[in-house]
Design a protein around this nucleic acid. Sequence first.
DNA 1: CGGCATCCATTTTGATACTG
DNA 2: CAGTATCAAAATGGATGCCG
Lengths: 228, 228
Amino acid sequence: MDQRTYNQYCATARTLDLVGERWTLLLIRELLTGPKRFGDLQTSLRGLGTGLLATRLKHLEHEGLAQKITLPPPARTPAYALTPAGEELGPAILALARWGLKWAMGEPRETETFHPGWAVLGLRACFDPEAATGLRAVYEFHIDDEVFHTRIDDATIEALHGPAQHPDVTITIGTEAFLRLTGQDLTLAEAIETGAASVSGDGEALRRLKGLFRLPLPHDRKTDRPSS
Amino acid sequence: MDQRTYNQYCATARTLDLVGERWTLLLIRELLTGPKRFGDLQTSLRGLGTGLLATRLKHLEHEGLAQKITLPPPARTPAYALTPAGEELGPAILALARWGLKWAMGEPRETETFHPGWAVLGLRACFDPEAATGLRAVYEFHIDDEVFHTRIDDATIEALHGPAQHPDVTITIGTEAFLRLTGQDLTLAEAIETGAASVSGDGEALRRLKGLFRLPLPHDRKTDRPSS
DNA sequence: CGGCATCCATTTTGATACTG
DNA sequence: CAGTATCAAAATGGATGCCG
């Protein structure tokens, strides 16, 4: 499979031999929010053909980073999940994401796709453990037709696809408003006022939400200056 | 250059659009220990031809991640250095390295190359800030014919190519022994006894050295078990 | 040495058609 | 759906040769 190795006895190079090929890290990014089916992966990763997707999944399976599983009843359909080794690539991917948030985001381009799951993973990238010491809360997001939840538990965060068991707060919002929220163009209060968002549950937990994350100030790579 | 974009409004994808092509992250890894000349980069990155190296460097320059500089006198020769934006990819690369140290290292393969700089960057990956709070020390390493130093200063670490200004400790050691040292096959005391290493300087700083790093226990990706 | 240009063999990829 | 099969386009690797 990977006959094109860097041939370096170096931890970074060895890692990139395993996951440095095109699409592989994005595939793992998708799986970081929970198991996904073949078709869902293809939908999220526009441009990745079925052939290459199958090849990549086989490679990840072969290398012990992902596993083909059967979803629990009543679904009983095949899906792919990360192994513990794959899961531990989370910190590396989040580090890349943090860099991107600071140095590479700006406005969406016409041609770009977007999926709410990416922004939810962004929350994980921006989570501030110190701000959450001693706290516990579960937030459920309904963004367009996708559902996510994040569970905060004393300096740890979890952000997964699907509904939560016992959400303290439920937030329903459209993709566009959610993007402006994370882009700091809009506060949650404003979104609620204008009807762009609706919220139910524990008001105190809701008030604490914003303080749990530290969104980086975007910078211009060429001037090294805040840009916006 | 990068007409092959993922076209996703996602921080990870945007980052990989900039640095996800083959060789790019390894190029940045090389520059993380200080400016390097064209030829030195090519020596470190066996398999990367002059043409592709030139292309990649231009791309990094164009995107504001690296800069072509002229080395200070008496060298006055061209070299490449990271910009602040490029420098900030350090955490992401170190996260990939930490993963590799845990899940992908094992023994060197016959075909693999090795350069001491990679191991020195590994120290940065394994540095434990908590263990270093309040400490200050500069260590200089002479590994075969390459010189590096790392400066510890109250929970921060710097690891650069070249000699230090005022090293507290100087360690001279061969590549092979240094590898066994970082692989925990050998203690520094043993290396000194057998003549594989020689040391001069502040004995107290030397004694503290080992405690500053937490080397991950290697695991097997398939069984999720410690492997060695 | 530093770096670009060119040519060519091999891989990798992207897109689409096709099958159980 | 979940994948295989196929083929054209692009990226890479290696070998040169050139020029300041």
